[in-house]
Nucleic acid binder design. Structure first.
Length: 926
RNA sequence: GGGCGGAUAGCUCAGUUGGGAGAGCGCUGCCCUUACAAGGCAGAGGCCGCAGGUUCGAGCCCUGUUCCGCCUACCA
């Protein structure tokens, strides 16, 4: 007994109506707040379902949403909404970053505009000022994220400087210090003379410039007639040279190792050393000056040879008269350059060298210059006491985690990038001489280190000698263990912003406390980020996460492309090439922008965004909108869900295809192929569902309450509801609006189950029959077009086939063909076809003819047919050649051979029909 | 200097293990066919950067090369 389940869907009473044109603003305003008010995005650690966690890459608290954020957060939202619908216990944790130097610069600029030098304001007042600015501007980006539809659990909003996270930072610092992984030392660091702070290696941008190479002669002390010629791009640093290096195996120079040379413009003699690491015999003259206080290589060479360091410049990159006097610089030279900026001192030194006959050659030289990533000022290597993290012990497990697959980087190509960087990693300079940030939890006893008194509040850490050993503690100490006194000054430096960011995946979940949240949601599932912060952030989260939790902070790292402008340049305000996502959202709708970004998120490739594309997807949204209107107009009637096998073939076909798309979308999302998932939806909804299904069922629906109409009405609503769920992660606002309007069960689409494929919807036969309809209809339409035969004019289609199954399929679909072709269909033996005014067309193994009424343009048709014939003949010839080749027969796979044969058969049949059409047309023409 | 990626239709790009060159936008023609003109139907347009190689067969694999982009780097 066949069990039939019948039930009638009734339309709900709804106040919602769909206007003729899709107006996104109204729709977005309605649902964005609705979702939040009802708490649909809230996560609870005790919920059922396998946890799925994403922590947001926290945007700068005072920032504004740019297109990169839009992409980044759209992708995260797609993942989270999808997983939420799948029934996972989802948490998307939102938050903002205090962004040390960036924010400090913003406030400093504001103050300068008001005519207040920041130094005059003082540290505490300055910080207060930043907090009040945060109060005022900090919500901007959060509101913008909400507008984008970001389904974060907004009740869990965190900030890198809030109480809990600040505590986590101090905890992490103290623990690392206890283990000897944080140290303070005199090192050469990248120094920005404008920001007056240290920068980490990756905060320095390199820019190629055309510089000058100066060749300078250094005479030997015991043989002034012999000189070593050294080449340098920074002649002024010669005043701080403490040795000259040559390669120990260089026969030109190695006899001089151990001798001394007289340093030009000074009264100093400096040694010649052999150093195979520093010196490349092939480059320049083969002799290198060593200036340990002003060059990173020289610093290391200085360590190897125990050379003194002479710092020539102040922290503002001015020539320091005190130190160069001590370095024995000739009084005349000294006076001429004292207190000058380094760039002004250089030509004076060059002139002096030239005057005294030391300058032997000047030539152009391509070189790179390091600049501050924030303010673009030329960075100076600067010798000062700073805090560092000893990175090697942290890097090794972080390398292993990726190598062993505990962390998956997607696309995989970036793994090598990551591993390469991690293997060559150097100690991380974490101290910054600014005010805004987490202040380093280290205190100096003013009794033990009277120098500490001299600290200029705020930016004076370089005045505290590196041998001073501070008390590192989560809270201010009360008594000095050495002298029993109780006067302390806290280290004025703050931590690199990325230090707190490195803790983000677990500090936001309550660490160091062992919370239920931490237990449930950590390690997080997926980190979605751009390549630009792979080293800044991702690598450090992995190192620090492994260190403190013993677990990798996330399972997958999905790295998306950078959004660039039409010329492929990085978008930036200064270049004026930004596409503002908020403007586009207002113009085309948030869903259109989201869908555009998802569609373009191909892996490994930068996105060049153009406005036309957004418009195209706006049209897609409008298409769906109008499909919804059509469905609502036609849903108003009796409908019955019956077993798939009992439904009309068009319903079987559309369900079979929907099944396929459902599988495909899910599969593509599993692989993070947002572009392909979006493409599947676009193609199916527009070009199968709307173009074919809705057109095919129009006559069926008009047929009142016939069984076919009832079933189709039910199928229509069923599939369309299914599609809204499938599309929801990509276009949340539009789908919610539509879903709320069509028959549905539940409060919101947000919490509906994500569709899964149904085996019984699979129907190969229906798909095959559809293909026949599609081909015939397209062929007849093409026939109409090439004859300039108006669509309104009627015609008769004649069809036959050798295969009885094909005839049966033709018969089954004749009404659909008649409807879509606007004509009548006759199935008859070819002998019974009329001989006059008939155009023969080929559709695979079917033979089709169309008879027309009235006048037609035959010449055009003849030309077109000739062209088609040529194309087909070419293809047939190629296939024929391939099949005739003995090598092909011997080596190609059997199915490939079979396919080629079948295709050639079809081509041959088509060609014969073409030739018959051509003859017919010629007959008609005369 | 090292590494990575790209070069396919006028534009922006897709092309999964090698077997009939695709999409969107733009363009041309026809059509307001009662969901949609932000639409429908049909169409034009491509030595897949260049040169070799492997293969019965290459947009796809290999080598070389040109141009563009990105990352990285201590060549004084």
């Amino acid at each position: 007994m066949l069990k039939l389940t019948y039930f009638v869907i009734s339309l709900p009473m709804t106040s919602l109506q769909l206007n003729k044109t899709y107006e996104p603003q109204a729709v977005e305003a309605r649902w964005g707040q609705y979702w939040i008010d009802r708490g649909y995005f809230g996560a609870a650690a005790d919920s059922t379902g396998q946890p799925y966690t994403i922590v947001i890459p926290p945007p700068n608290v005072t920032g504004s949403l740019h297109i990169g954020h839009a992409l980044n957060n759209t992708l995260q939202d797609i993942l989270i909404r999808w997983r939420r619908m799948q029934g996972r216990n989802t948490l998307w944790l939102p938050g903002t970053d205090h962004a040390g130097i960036a924010t400090q610069n913003v406030i400093e600029r504001q103050l300068l505009e008001e005519g207040i030098p920041p130094a005059q304001l003082g540290r505490d007042a300055f910080i207060e000022r930043v907090w009040s600015w945060k109060q005022q501007a900090g919500n901007t980006i959060l509101e913008q994220l909400k507008r984008l539809g970001a389904s974060c659990d907004w009740s869990r909003l965190r900030f890198t400087m809030d109480k809990g996270l600040s505590e986590a930072v101090r905890e992490a610092f103290v623990r690392l210090h206890q283990e000897g992984l944080i140290y303070r030392g005199d090192r050469l660091i990248n120094w920005c003379p404008r920001c007056l702070t240290a920068l980490s290696d990756i905060e320095v941008e390199h820019e190629p410039i055309r510089g000058t190479m100066y060749h300078i002669s250094y005479p030997l002390t015991d043989d002034p007639c012999t000189s070593l010629i050294i080449a340098t791009t920074r002649p002024e640093t010669l005043l701080g040279d403490t040795a000259v290096a040559v390669h120990p195996e260089d026969p030109r120079y190695n006899q001089h190792i151990g001798k001394f040379i007289k340093l030009p413009l000074t009264n100093r003699a400096i040694p010649i050393v052999g150093d195979s690491i520093l010196v490349d015999r092939e480059f320049g003259t083969g002799a290198v000056k060593i200036t340990p206080a002003h060059d990173f290589n020289d610093f290391e060479a200085g360590e190897r040879h125990q050379l003194p360091r002479i710092a020539l410049l102040t922290h503002q990159a001015l020539v320091n008269p005190d130190t160069i006097r001590d370095a024995g610089v000739e009084p005349g030279v000294l006076d001429s350059i004292a207190n000058l900026p380094v760039t002004k001192a250089r030509p004076i030194i060059v002139e002096a060298l030239k005057h005294q006959g030391f300058l032997t050659k000047v030539e152009d030289h391509q070189m790179v210059l390091g600049k501050c990533y924030r303010c673009k000022t030329v960075v100076e290597p600067f010798l000062s006491p700073q805090w560092f993290i000893k990175i090697q012990p942290l890097a090794d497990p972080a390398i292993a985690a990726v190598e062993q697959g505990h962390i998956r980087i997607i696309p995989e190509e970036w793994s090598n990038n990551y591993l390469g960087w991690m293997r060559g990693i150097k100690d991380w300079c974490i101290s910054r001489q600014i005010w805004w940030g987490h202040r380093i939890p280290a205190w100096y006893c003013t009794t033990c280190y009277p120098e500490a008194h001299k600290i200029l509040e705020g930016r004076g850490s370089r005045l505290i000698p590196s041998h001073a050993s501070p008390i590192v503690s989560k809270t201010a100490p009360t008594t000095c263990a050495t002298c029993r006194q109780g006067q302390f000054i806290q280290d004025p430096d703050v931590l690199d912003t990325w230090f707190s960011s490195a803790l983000w995946p677990f500090s936001t979940l309550g660490w160091p406390a062992n919370t239920k949240d931490l237990e449930t949601y950590y390690p997080t599932s997926t980190l979605v980020t751009g390549l630009d912060i792979l080293f800044f952030w991702v690598a450090r989260m992995i190192m620090i996460g492994l260190k403190f939790t013993g677990k990798p902070p996330f399972r997958d790292v999905y790295i998306h492309a950078l959004v660039r402008d039409a010329e492929g340049k990085k978008m930036s305000k200064s270049k004026g090439n930004v596409i503002d996502p908020l403007t586009k959202m207002s113009q085309y709708g948030t869903d259109a922008l989201r869908f555009t970004l998802a569609s373009m998120a191909s892996p490994g490739r930068d996105i060049k965004l153009s406005e036309d594309q957004i418009e195209g997807y706006r049209n897609f949204a409008n298409k769906i909108w109008n499909a919804a209107r059509f469905i609502l107009m036609n849903a108003d009637g009796p409908s019955e869900i019956c077993p798939v096998s009992d439904r009309p073939f068009v319903d079987q076909w559309v369900l079979s295809r929907l099944n396929h798309v459902t599988n495909a979308v899910t599969g593509r999302l599993e692989e993070y192929r947002f572009d392909q998932a979006a493409g599947q939806l676009y193609q199916y909804i527009w070009h199968e569902y709307c173009d074919w299904y809705l057109e095919l069922i129009k006559p069926v629906l008009q047929n009142g309450d016939s069984p076919a109409a009832r079933s189709t009405r039910a199928t229509l609503l069923q599939t369309f509801e299914h599609l809204q769920r499938l599309l929801h992660p990509f276009m949340p606002f539009l789908t919610e609006e539509i879903w709320q309007t069509i028959p549905h069960q539940g409060e919101s689409l947000v919490r509906q189950p994500f569709p899964v494929a149904t085996q019984e919807w699979e129907n190969a036969k229906a798909e095959q029959t559809f293909t026949i309809i599609e081909q015939i209809v397209t062929t007849v339409r093409t026939g109409r077009a090439l004859l300039d035969y108006a669509p309104s004019k009627s015609l008769t289609i004649w069809g036959t086939a050798k295969d009885p199954d094909a005839i049966a399929q033709l018969n089954e679909s004749r009404h659909h063909i008649a409807h879509l072709c606007r004509g009548t269909v006759s199935i008859a033996d070819q002998n019974d076809w009329p001989t006059d005014r008939i155009l023969h067309l080929a559709v695979g193994s079917l033979m089709i003819g169309m008879t027309l009424e009235g006048e037609v343009d035959l010449n055009k048709a003849l030309a077109r047919i000739k062209k088609h014939t040529q194309t087909k003949q070419k293809e047939a010839a190629r296939l024929h050649g391939r099949l005739a080749s003995p090598n092909f027969a011997a080596k190609a796979a059997p199915d490939v051979i079979q396919e080629s044969k079948e295709r050639l058969d079809i081509l041959t049949a088509e060609l014969s029909l073409f030739s018959s059409s051509e003859q017919q047309l010629q007959k008609m023409a005369f």
